[in-house]
Amino acid sequence: MRGVFDIVGPIMIGPSSSHTAGAARLGLMAGKILGEKVVKAEILLHGSFAQTYRGHGTDKALIGGIMGFSPEDDRIRNALEIADKEGLEYSFETVDLAEAHPNTAVLKLVGDKGRKVVVGGASIGGGNIEVSRIDSFEVSLTGEYPALVVVHRDRPGVINVIASVLARYGINIAFMRVSRRTRGQQAMMIIETDDELTEEIISACRDTGAIENAFAIPAI
């Protein structure tokens, strides 16, 4: 059974929990994954998102989220104007992604320090989301937990090294998923935790020398 505040709640900007609140969370999550101020956003919309995004303010919610607005932030209404003012360049395109969830968006983001990321995800109902893709990696992220993202070479022992770091800091792993492009090539490990991940922990992961990069995505 879920919690009381999933029924009476959440506080949100209307009109739709899936097409507005969920879209804002998806944008927010994508922005956190980029980890920089977003200066450019190319957004692809699929299914019901593609058909009804204007009527539900899905475009405003996504852009608002990308700028860091939470689903209850009044500024979502004027997110497109605010984006223009702040120099965030954005575009929307409707696409057919075949069997993807009907409320799917793909966000191609560029940050002010030059970092780029492609985030794919869906608004799965009641304002809840699932990020299913980061760049070319399949992932599964809900934003309900802090997450550690580790980019590494696909070889034995890496999971053990990272899990040991987390154990040392008393961090409990709630969910985890590892995916790779090809055997022995680049891989991505996503670990959702019950406890906050500090910069110290992320540095400790990097200092192991076993990985290419690590970063944290806070819960949203």
Binding site: G9, I11, M12, I13, G14, P15
Partner: peptide
Amino acid sequence: EVNAVMGRIVACPTAGSCGIV
């Protein structure tokens, strides 16, 4: 109507039924 103009509401249990409770 506030929900429909992108105003702030409490989903209860959903946004579509947010006025009743």
